[in-house]
């Protein structure tokens, strides 16, 4: 690891983790994790379906989150998500709460993803904040 990567991991801003999954159907999900001001920022871009959730699962399980009290999850780059996203988020929210941390959806959601939350009645389950 280069010294700059080490500096990032010591709490400065910058990406500390990144994974990109090529899904079996030709889609792709890329997830990055950054740390800034004691907060974890997880950013997901692409499409999410039941076979292709692991990059986001791993990001939300990353050990770096344990040192933070708040995770901002930016899903504005998700062009589609199915109900597997909801299960993943609910699980992660439970884990966050167990260590007295908050999971917050940061930024806007694309209409089809916002609609997923709305029609399943899960909009109110998650804290939201603008980016």
């Amino acid at each position: 690891m280069s010294s700059s990567a080490t500096a990032d991991e010591q709490g400065g801003s910058g990406t500390v983790w990144y994974r990109r999954a090529a899904c079996a159907d030709g889609g792709e999900l890329a997830v990055s994790l950054a740390l800034s001001d004691g907060r974890a920022l997880v950013t997901a871009v692409g499409g999410m379906e039941w076979r292709c959730t692991w990059p986001l699962e791993q990001a939300l399980d990353h050990e770096c989150l344990a040192a933070t009290s708040e995770t901002w999850l930016d899903l504005s780059g998700l062009e589609f998500a199915d109900s597997s996203l909801l299960h993943l988020l609910l699980d992660s929210q439970r884990v966050h709460r167990a260590r007295d941390a908050r999971l917050v959806l940061a930024g806007a959601l694309q209409p089809v993803v916002e609609r997923l939350f709305t029609v399943t009645g899960t909009t109110a389950f998650f804290m939201r904040t603008p980016l």
Partner: peptide, 28 residues
């Protein structure tokens, strides 16, 4: 056929005959 392919077919079927929210519901 994967879900992505089915969504593409539905988008094509609904082009011009359904509003955005309806299309999104169908995709979901």
């Amino acid at each position: 056929l994967k879900a992505r392919g089915a969504r593409a077919e539905v988008s094509r079927l609904l082009a011009g005959v359904a509003g955005e929210r309806c299309v999104n519901d169908a995709l979901l």
